[in-house]
Amino acid sequence: MANRSNEPFLWALFSGGGVAAAFLIPVLLFLYGLAFPLGWLQPPDYERTLGLVQHPLTRLVLFLLCFLSLFHWAHRFRFTLYDGLQIKHLNPAINLFCYGGAVTGTLAAAYLLWTLP
């Protein structure tokens, strides 16, 4: 290919994140953001939650969810800032903010999931 751009790679992450976020986040945000705090449902206690999250498969799923969703956000938000506010001249700053944020969050997720007792 004459022009090797990294857009396909970023778009793949964006799409993967779109799928992961669509399948997983609505139910999780509903439970932890609304149902549990408002007492509609009884949340699982510390031991059970830890037991669930400690499972290697859960760790993998949660890591992928964080990683892909953050890159999904980075990609979409970058274009929203370009188009919605017409601030294309701030490109380097926007890219740094979006992808830098996504990389930071992904590293944090990896660290937290790795060091879980």
Partner: peptide, 26 residues
């Protein structure tokens, strides 16, 4: 379209909550 694109902000917002939860869990 704009609202659809802005939904990504709340996707990232949830990930932050999840990270805080993992932090607390640890």
């Amino acid at each position: 379209f704009m609202l659809r694109e802005l939904s990504s902000v709340f996707v990232a917002f949830y990930v932050v909550i999840l990270l805080l939860q993992l932090h607390a869990l640890g």
